[in-house]
């Protein structure tokens, strides 16, 4: 970015490598899963998260993120502060209601990821602050997630549409559901499709209800854009497909 002159050369560059080890951790605590800011995506993939079906979406996103080499360099917080629609881990973490612990010499604060994201490349982080960790409330039993994106090729893609879904079932009833996309409307940053969530909550899970949510509810809260890569119409149609596929896959994972 600096080389492309898209951002000015900063006066100082804080190199977090010195505290890389300290901030690279994945721990289960009472209030949820804590992922240290400099934990790489690869390190996450080696953790219990990738073995627990309640976090199945982490496996999906990992396999679709950049390339293997990039997954070994990219950190979870790095992905979050970049704050674009292409930062796949944001899309996924939104459906886990993730929070961030932010620290500075003045103290620390906890902010919801959703509130942290202000706009594209704009986040709620002061110059003297840094993200310390990501906290994911531990999901209940009988829950799972799914992440999906696709494009012309399989790898190194932005994705025509990116979407994640978290599903919690009680028997066959949708006890909780959270849905996110690379964008929903206006801001080109990942966001939740809350109307669709509300529509689904409390209903019996069925293919029909999923289709209805995708075809009838999602379009009422989503507005897609046309750009040189593809059209708003295609993105909208694919958002529906991604929603359906994510929910069905999460469902199968819970049942399976």
């Amino acid at each position: 970015m600096i080389r492309d002159k898209r951002i000015p050369t900063p006066k100082y560059l804080v190199d977090l490598n010195a505290i890389k080890k300290e901030l690279a951790f994945i721990e289960k605590k009472e209030d949820g899963i804590h992922i240290g800011a400099t934990t790489t995506l690869y390190e996450i993939s080696q953790s219990f998260l990738h073995k627990d079906k309640r976090f199945a979406g982490f496996v999906d996103v990992f396999k679709l993120f950049g390339t293997m080499a990039l997954r070994m360099e990219a950190t979870i917080a790095g992905n979050i502060v970049s704050a674009t629609q292409y930062n796949d881990y944001i899309t996924l973490l939104l459906v886990y209601d993730a929070k961030l612990r932010i620290k500075s010499i003045d103290g620390e604060r906890i902010v919801k990821l959703e509130d942290f994201l202000i706009d594209k490349r704009k986040v709620d982080l002061k110059p003297n602050e840094l993200i310390y960790e990501v906290i994911i409330p531990e999901p209940p039993e009988k829950s799972s997630s799914s992440f999906y994106k696709f494009d012309r090729r399989r790898l190194l893609i932005a994705g025509v549409v990116t979407g994640a879904a978290f599903l919690h079932l009680e028997d066959n009833k949708i006890a909780d559901v959270r849905i996110s996309f690379d964008m929903v409307r206006e801001k080109r940053i990942p966001a939740r499709a809350k109307k669709t969530e509300e529509f689904l909550k409390g209903k019996e899970f069925s293919e029909e209800i999923i289709v209805k949510a995708a075809e009838e509810v999602l379009p009422t809260e989503m507005e897609r854009v046309t750009d040189w890569w593809t059209t708003a119409e295609y993105r909208m149609d694919m958002s529906k497909v991604v929603l359906k596929r994510n929910l069905l896959r999460a469902y199968e994972r819970i049942k399976g």
Binding site: L13, D15, G66, T67, M68, A69, L70, M72, E73, L156
Partner: peptide, 21 residues
């Protein structure tokens, strides 16, 4: 960091040398 031709190993792990200061 897109083409991977600059990959080297840093402390045994792959690293894009073009993205590393």
């Amino acid at each position: 960091g897109e083409c991977g031709t600059c990959i080297v190993l840093v402390n045994g792990m792959p690293r894009h040398s073009c993205l590393t200061l």
